[in-house]
């Protein structure tokens, strides 16, 4: 299997190198998306299927959609991404030496790093955590505070984007691509099915809130692209949208506080009810991640008065 790994490493290196070195904005973005897909395969080879699912949906899908939308909105003067070698030919040797120096140092450091790990500690408390799959148990119970803060970071990002400008209106695609809205509507049940499957599977196998939210968010971006979600742009629904965006964080906080009231420690879920708590948090987190990924795509505040 070393040959497969070698090919994957070469593919990752080639796509990353083309993304960083060659001219052309569109080519760079397309190469980044390809790099995300190659990375997803590398995660599978490294026995990290949860990370592979999230990387395929977010790293290759949503990041690429965000970058391509911005590239479409920019004036033509910004499209010419210069080749990185144009002004640097004199310094090529110095840069190569620097790259090789950092690479060698980091490689030796990583390979000789001690790997203590917490495998036995996690296995010992897994039975009380309410989830059979270790990654879900860590994300939603054992290290729930990290996930809480991560949802807060996403909400802060939405607030920062909303304070900058008005939302980009949905592009008038229907005349140019008459099949696209229909295709988006036909595909959406598939996105919903995958979302539900990942959510259901998350308690005992790879899946869970993050990949599920990412898949639903990607489907939502496709619907936004075709203008199928009109309510998000209407002023009347703005308050509802705000509450929905905050719902995941508020629910998470409520769970942490109820854990505090029941067991005496913040985020200490009682082992008897932990599985119910985990399912509830999983659904709330996945839905709010999906909605926040969709609002990223608007690049501004929707529903302002005209």
């Amino acid at each position: 299997m070393l040959v497969v790994d070698l090919l994957l490493a070469l593919a990752a290196l080639a796509t990353a190198g083309q993304c960083l070195l060659l001219p052309g904005l569109f080519r760079a973005i397309a190469n980044l998306m390809a790099f995300g897909l190659v990375m997803a395969l590398i995660w599978v080879r490294l026995d990290a299927p949860d990370v592979a699912l999230a990387e395929a949906a977010i790293g290759a899908g949503i990041t690429g959609a965000l970058l391509l939308t911005v590239a479409g909105q920019l004036p033509a003067s910004q499209h010419s991404l210069q080749s990185i070698g144009s002004g640097l030919s004199r310094r090529t040797l110095a840069i190569s030496v620097l790259v090789l120096f950092i690479t060698g140092l980091l490689w030796i450091a990583v390979v000789s790093l001690p790997k203590p790990g917490l495998v036995n500690e996690v296995t010992a408390v897994l039975a009380d955590s309410g989830a059979e799959h270790a990654v879900t148990a860590i994300l939603l119970n054992l290290r729930g505070m990290d996930t809480l803060l991560e949802v807060a970071v996403m909400l802060c990002a939405v607030a920062a984007i909303w304070s900058l400008q008005k939302a980009i209106p949905p592009p008038p695609l229907n005349n140019h691509y008459p099949g696209l809205p229909t295709l988006a509507r036909w595909l959406h049940p598939l996105f919903l099915l995958t979302f539900s499957y990942f959510l259901w599977q998350g308690a005992h196998a790879p899946g869970g809130a993050f990949p599920a939210g990412a898949v639903l968010g990607a489907g939502g971006v496709l619907l936004l692209l075709t203008g199928s979600i009109a309510w998000m742009h209407q002023h009347a629904y703005n308050l509802l949208l705000r509450w929905l965006l905050a719902a995941g964080l508020l629910f998470f906080l409520a769970t942490a506080l109820s854990g505090f009231l029941i067991t005496g420690t913040l985020y200490g879920l009682p082992p008897r009810f932990a599985s119910y708590f985990i399912i509830a948090i999983e659904v709330a987190t996945a839905l709010s991640i999906a909605l926040m990924l969709m609002t990223f795509y608007l690049f501004g505040r929707p529903g302002t008065r005209q």
Binding site: A9, V99, T103, L106, V111
Partner: peptide
Amino acid sequence: LFALLGALLVAM
């Protein structure tokens, strides 16, 4: 191999 890839990507 993947450690080398990661180190090279970090440097680049």
